[in-house]
Design a protein around this nucleic acid. Structure first.
Length: 555
RNA sequence: CGGGGCGUGGCUCAGCCUGGUAGAGCACCUGGUUCGGGACCAGGGGGUCGGAGGUUCAAAUCCUCUCGCCCCGACCA
């Protein structure tokens, strides 16, 4: 491609509404333009890159499955059948057709694939199946952000597996794990695979592929010693130990006038906050539950969801706390309820003794309270892990980092098979319900993550496999016949050799061309300048900005 | 949805407080000189100041409503 014929609208300055590096550079490099909140147009450079990413995904997926192309617009009935028409709430785009029939835009396609499976699959002999597509997804996100990182319309590779039994699902899952690694390797990403929270959908195992970076919205915990890596929604580890008094004393109520926070209490009692137990009260589908965590810990929303068995929950209202605890928030504890309440306690409190807790009496707390002795909790893992906690496997310190989720694989179970009536006959002639897996990769996320991990103040560089062009040729002065002729020769020769080359044949000064070349993500630059007469050109590696000269004939 | 910020030529912004008929840099067009890290000179085109209503002799500027975008949070298969 010759730049003079191309549409590459680069910007000298960053538009004011971009803050994240990938967002700034995608705009400045002329890759994308915004149409609305979380809605972007892909310009030619972005589309070339996204097509290369999609082709890598397609080539790898074709080794284990078959490509479909499903509708993006769905009758509401399909989503009503699985119950997700309600469950997805505002995130599902909804519309009506001319006959006032309800429709929605696909945000994922378990239901549609399951509809096909239910109508077409008859025998266990047809399984396993791995079906995938690369297609636009729509999600009415409450808050789109950071350019392409979180958008309302995006391109996803979504795949679904159907197996007769769990052993088959394990295999399909492993195939995706392997293929995903090949995809991300080929895309040149540095990534980690982490254990993920399966969510309330009843999945049994789930794994996310994460690219570390501050722009990310997820938090992952990584052990620097062993291979342990998990999303913070799932990660467990041991907090630093806190010393308790050796001998068990009797619970003793004492006045704590006006003290309602852990920090106030720690200061007042002279004890570290880890010696206190923090009491949180939740309404779990109408049931009031008291959750205790160590005073210096925070409860994780995702882990609470798991602890509550996937039931809906919210923090209890103050009136509910008064009704059940007999005291307003601030003095709540596990003893002396006004009404019986279920107690859950975080594992970090297991084996602890002589803790200080709320007295369920305004202005009072109780010291010398020992879980398991003075109250009987259900033990759960609900604490949010922090940097410096010790790995559950090997007791080395864990590091918590932000990360961008580029892929997610998980074992779905039979929820959609059952909902959509997928069933086949097994070898004995009995009906079995196939078990499903679900696997996704965000195309724009791969591009965004690559930019997040490969940029400097001047721009970014993409791995050659996903760059819009692998090489840019920069003639410094087209008025010089030697330069002009040599540039065109090299351009023709590289293209004939199958390279994806951009020739900057614009009538611009060298400085402008260099700045643009640094900006737009092309990994290799060939500069043709003063030594063209001797047949010498320069090769610059964008990532390192190292340059070497070589004869044009060696290219 | 709660909190904060911003809408003025394509981009970045000034002007608003204290009303008086819109400006800079970059970009763009023409001519010329230039040509290794975002050149220079001369000339030129382009803006219903997000929208609606109001106050006023007069509104980018003051008031009301409204739309949009960004950031933080809540939310997120």
């Amino acid at each position: 491609m010759r730049w003079s014929q191309a549409f590459i609208p680069t910007l000298r300055e960053a538009p004011s509404d971009a803050e994240v590096a990938s967002h700034i550079f995608l705009l400045r490099a002329g890759y994308i333009r915004q149409l609305g909140a979380g809605i972007y147009s892909f310009l030619p450079l972005a589309w070339r890159s996204l097509l290369k990413i999609q082709n890598i995904v397609r080539e790898e997926m074709d080794t284990i499955g078959q490509e479909f192309h499903l509708p993006a617009i769905h009758p509401a009935e399909v989503w009503q059948a699985s119950g997700r028409y309600q469950l997805m709430g505002g995130n599902l785009f909804r519309l009506k057709d001319r006959f006032q029939r309800d429709l929605c835009l696909g945000m994922t396609e378990e239901e549609v694939m399951a509809v096909i499976a239910s109508k077409e699959l008859r025998s266990y002999k047809q399984l396993p199946q791995i079906w995938y597509q690369i297609q636009t997804k729509f999600r009415d996100e409450p808050r789109p952000r950071a350019g392409l990182l979180r958008v309302r319309e995006f391109i996803m590779k979504d795949a679904y597996s159907f197996d007769v039994d769990e052993a088959g699902l394990d295999l399909s899952y492993q195939k995706h794990d392997r293929v995903y690694r090949q995809i991300f390797d080929r895309c040149g990403l540095r990534y980690v695979s982490v254990e993920a929270h399966s969510g309330a959908m009843g999945g049994s195992q789930s794994q996310e592929f994460m690219v570390l970076g501050d722009a990310g919205e997820d938090m992952v915990a990584l052990c620097q010693n062993c291979q342990y890596a998990a999303n913070l929604e799932k990660a467990s580890g041991h907090p630093a130990a806190v010393e308790d008094p050796a001998t068990q004393a009797a619970p003793e109520e004492f006045p704590t006038p006006g003290l309602h926070t852990i920090a106030d209490l720690a200061q007042f009692t002279g004890e570290p906050s880890g010696r206190l137990a923090k009491s949180l009260v939740y309404n779990v589908e109408g049931e009031i539950v008291l959750v205790l965590v160590r005073g210096d810990d925070e409860a994780s929303e995702a882990k609470l969801g798991t602890a509550f068995g996937g039931r809906e929950f919210r923090p209890a209202h103050p009136e509910e706390i008064v009704e059940h605890m007999g005291t307003p928030p601030g003095s709540v504890g596990p003893l002396h309820f006004a009404k019986p309440v279920k107690i859950m306690a975080d594992q970090a409190l297991r084996g602890r003794s002589n803790l200080t807790v709320g007295a369920n009496r305004d202005g009072f707390h109780i010291r010398h309270v020992t879980p398991g002795v003075h109250f009987q909790p259900e033990w759960v893992d609900v604490r949010e892990l922090r940097t410096g906690d010790l790995c559950a496997n090997c007791s080395h310190p864990l590091q918590v980092s932000k990360a961008i989720e580029v892929g997610h694989i998980f074992k779905l179970g039979r929820k959609y098979s059952i909902a959509m009536g997928v069933k086949v006959l097994d070898a004995q002639g009995g009906e079995v319900i196939p078990i499903m897996g679900s696997y996704g990769i965000g195309m724009e996320r791969i591009l965004t993550a690559a930019i997040e991990q490969n940029h400097d103040k001047d721009g970014f560089w993409l791995p050659a496999a996903i760059a819009p062009f692998d090489t840019i040729i920069v003639p410094t002065n087209l008025g010089d016949t030697n330069i002009e002729v040599l540039s065109r020769q090299i351009y023709d020769r590289l293209r004939a050799a199958g390279r994806d080359v951009l020739l900057d044949d614009r009538d611009e000064r060298p400085g402008v061309k260099f700045k643009d070349a640094d900006l737009i993500g092309i990994p290799t630059r060939i500069t043709i300048g003063k030594k063209a007469a001797q047949g010498i050109v320069e090769i610059t590696d964008r990532a390192t900005k190292t340059m070497r000269e070589m004869p044009a004939s060696d290219l």
